[in-house]
């Protein structure tokens, strides 16, 4: 991953998401709102990139632009060298929303199967994939349960399984653990890291939590609001192998401190 300051370009890498001077202005009743301004960013294959910043900094909007759920008003962006919309049509990414958003009328297996049915996998392959991804998120044995029978954390794991089911290379996660309590969140963070190590996906992860961003990512994009822009991209020096205890080490606290300073300098705290 690189940005304008040229950080973190040790070896040639395959760029998956490339944004150049990206602008997005929403026309609202109160006049135009500059949601994104001059976003320039490269995300390489296998990166785990966290987007952090106060509300209104455009982190979710940027994720939605990557997913072709919002149309930028200026600049360029490519996903796998295609436009975001072309990438969406090829199902290049899985999206995990803040709310698990499982269908209450479908079992856990049925929910994971939803994208597979839409894409048109054969019945056997659907079963096979459901089994595989539910194992991946530690939900084997819950196939026939309905969402309301599961805890919030388990529901969110099921929604991650749903996003993984069709083997998209990119995982876009919009504050997926924001509504969960800290103990569950720790556990899911640990599991997400393992999952990332096993699948080698490219993950874009929006969060409000500094420890979460530092614990998970290879790169932390610090954003600032009004207009939403990138203040700083911090490359995380922590090793890929990260037990939960790493959060008490001086190295971890040092990175967390840099993120906090970045947020402060980007006027992140005045909103």
């Amino acid at each position: 991953m690189q940005n304008e300051q040229g950080q973190g370009a040790d070896c040639p890498k395959e760029t998956v998401i490339r944004a150049r001077d990206l602008d997005l202005v929403f026309q609202t009743n109160d006049g135009p709102v500059h949601a994104l301004k001059d976003i320039t960013l490269d995300i390489d294959r296998g990166d785990f990139v966290s987007f952090i910043g106060p509300s209104g900094c455009g982190k979710t909007t940027f994720l939605r632009v990557i997913a072709a759920l919002e149309e930028p008003t200026g600049g360029e962006i490519t996903v796998n060298d295609l436009t975001p919309d072309e990438a969406r049509r090829l199902r290049a990414y899985g999206y995990v929303f803040q709310a698990a958003g499982l269908y209450p009328w479908r079992t856990i297996a049925g929910n994971v199967k939803l994208p597979l049915e839409i894409i048109g996998f054969t019945r056997e392959e659907q079963e096979e994939r459901v089994k595989k991804v539910l194992e991946l998120v530690d939900l084997e044995g819950f196939e026939r349960k309905y969402p309301w029978q599961l805890s919030g954390g388990m529901q969110q794991r099921a929604s991650i399984a749903r996003a993984l089911a069709f083997d998209a290379e990119i995982l876009l996660m919009d504050e997926p653990f924001g509504a969960l309590d800290e103990i569950v969140r720790d556990h899911l963070n640990e599991q997400l890291l393992k999952l990332w190590a096993r699948t080698n996906k490219t993950i874009c992860f929006v969060t409000h939590s500094i420890p979460e961003a530092v614990y998970l990512s290879t790169h932390i994009v610090v954003m600032s609001p009004r207009p939403g822009r990138i203040h700083e991209v911090i490359q995380n020096p922590l090793p890929r192998e990260r037990p939960l205890e790493i959060r008490d080490t001086p190295e971890f606290l040092e990175v967390a401190h840099r993120v906090r300073e970045g947020l402060k300098a980007g006027h992140g705290y005045d909103g």
Binding site: A67, L69, R88, F97, Q98, G101, L114, P115, E117, I118
Partner: peptide
């Protein structure tokens, strides 16, 4: 909106969104 967006991320057709959501 999130549920409809989800269908969009799967590139679901209008008929699929109707029948499944």
């Amino acid at each position: 909106r999130e549920q409809l967006d989800l269908m969009k991320t799967y590139n679901a057709s209008g008929l699929q969104s109707f029948l499944k959501l």
